[in-house]
Write a protein that binds this DNA or RNA. Structure first.
Lengths: 129, 129
DNA sequence: CGATGCACTTCAGTTCGTGAAGTCTTGCGG
DNA sequence: CCGCAAGACTTCACGAACTGAAGTGCATCG
C-alpha cells in the first residue's frame, strides 16, 4: 500500500505522486498565491482536492499558510524552505517535458491565456545530457 | 481531469504521478529487470498495476520490452533513451528524500534485505543548496 | 434586494490501485 | 504420472482517491 519509508526516492515519491501536488508547488515557486488563484491557474482541479493537497503540504511543512482577517477573507500560501527545495525537481520536469514531450508552453501563472504556439515538436533531439 | 498538455511540467507530471511509475524507472535505471524482479523489488505493488505501468511506459516509449521464448518465459524491461532522461529527476528525488525527509536507506535493487540502519535523522539540516 | 467574491466543505459518482486468485506452459521431485 | 513451482500476466471484487456540482457564511457592489 505505502512505499518503503526508508528509501529517499520512495519517500519523495509519496509526496510527489498525488495528483496536482507538483503543479501546486510549481505555482507557488513563482510567488505566494491565494486559494482562488491556484484554483484558477490549475484549471480542472476541484476545490476539494486543492484543499486536501494544501493541507497535506502544510502538514508536511512544505507550505506555509497565512490568513488575513479581511473583508473577503484572504488566505495566502507560500513555500517554506523545505518546499522550495523541490523546485529543482520541477525544473527537471520542465526540461524533460520540453525536450522529450514536445510541450512548449510556459504554463506559469504569468502566461495564462496565450495558447497554441507550439511549432509541432514531436521528434525529440537525439542527444541526451 | 487531465493536465494542460502544452505545459512541460504538466506533461511530465502526467507520466510521473501514477503510483509506482517513478520507482519502476528507478529500478530500471540500475539495470534491465524482469517482471518478477520488479514485482519483488517494489514490495507491495500489485501485478496488475505493474503490468499497467509497464505497458503505459512502453507505449510512451520510455521502456523497451524484450521477450525471450525460453522455458519459463522471460521478459525483460529496460529504459530507452527517453526513459533514461528521467533519471536525473529520480536523483533529485533521492537527494531531496535524504536531506529533507530523513530517508537514509538505499532502496536500490542491490540493497534488498538490509533494514533498520537509519540513525534517526528527523531534523533536516538548516541549509539548502 | 440580489449578485458576486472568497475560502472552503459536503455529496454522489467515476476512476485508480489493491489483494487474492486464476491461467498457461514446462521442468523437476516423488 | 501427479503435483508443485516458476514466470508473466489477467480477472475480479473491494476500497481509496479524485471529480463536478452545489452549498455555506459574510460583506461589499449595483
Amino acid at each position: 500500500m505505502a512505499y518503503d519509508e526508508n528509501c529517499p526516492v520512495c519517500a519523495t515519491a509519496e509526496i510527489v505522486c498525488g495528483k496536482w501536488t507538483l503543479l501546486i508547488i510549481r505555482d507557488l515557486a513563482d510567488d505566494r498565491q491565494r486559494f482562488c488563484e491556484l484554483e484558477r491557474s490549475l484549471k480542472g482541479i476541484s476545490p476539494r482536492t486543492l484543499s486536501l493537497r494544501l493541507r497535506a503540504l502544510e502538514e508536511e511543512g512544505m507550505v506555509k499558510r497565512e490568513t488575513f482577517p479581511e473583508v473577503p477573507p484572504r488566505v495566502e500560501y507560500a513555500l517554506t524552505e523545505k518546499g522550495r527545495a523541490l523546485v529543482p525537481l520541477i525544473e527537471d520536469m520542465r526540461s524533460y517535458g520540453r525536450r522529450w514531450l514536445g510541450a512548449e508552453g510556459d504554463c506559469t501563472p504569468a502566461a495564462e491565456d496565450d495558447a497554441a504556439v507550439a511549432p509541432a515538436v514531436v521528434a525529440p533531439p537525439a542527444f541526451a545530457a
